[in-house]
Simulated scan of single mutants.
Amino acid sequence: MVQSLVISFDVSVSQRLPFFDNTLDIVHSMHVLSNWIPDAMLEFTLYDIYRVLRPGGLFWLDRFFCLGSQLNQTYVPMLDRVGFRNLRWNAGMKLERGIDKNEWYFSALLEKPMT
């Protein structure tokens, strides 16, 4: 019998996640991680998510907001440095004001490699 437990909680991006290394199957972040977080703190947070995921675990980064220039220059390389494997990636221009300001949302399903 397979058992699963879903824990929903809020934690500040300035804190480490309160879990042991390699213990979670999935981490989902929606509308929290975005370009408002300084790059060094965001990268620290991504490494902490990587730390708590078990090998093969999934990180679902949902509706990450950024400027078009930041997407490929800052955030794609940052996710690659952390070590996630890209399973699915969707990006789209923010429709409310995005056309004039080159604002984008992206969502990604990322995996912590088995090795």
Rank of each mutant, 00 (worst) to 15 (best):
R16I: 10
L58S: 06
M1A: 15
D48T: 06
R16H: 08
P18N: 05
S14E: 10
F44A: 10
L110S: 12
D100C: 06
R16P: 06
N35Y: 06
G57N: 02
D25L: 04
Q15E: 14
E43I: 00
R81F: 02
F84E: 03
E103G: 02
Q70I: 07
R85Y: 06
P38Q: 03
L42Q: 02
V2H: 15
Q73L: 13
S14K: 11
R63F: 07
Y75N: 10
V32Y: 00
R85K: 12
A108Q: 11
Y75I: 01
L110D: 02
N22V: 01
V82N: 00
S29K: 08
M1H: 15
D80Q: 09
L110T: 09
F9T: 11
M114A: 11
Y105P: 05
N72T: 15
W104R: 03
M78C: 08
Y50G: 00
W89R: 02
G92V: 08
E111H: 01
D25S: 07
M114I: 15
D39H: 03
T74S: 04
G57S: 09
P55C: 11
L58Q: 07
S4A: 06
K112N: 03
R54Q: 13
L109T: 05
R54K: 04
S8R: 12
D10E: 13
F9V: 12
R81M: 03
R97T: 13
F20E: 13
A91L: 08
A40W: 11
F59K: 03
N72K: 13
R16W: 14
Q70K: 02
D10T: 10
F64I: 00
S107L: 03
G83H: 00
W104C: 03
R16S: 11
N90S: 11
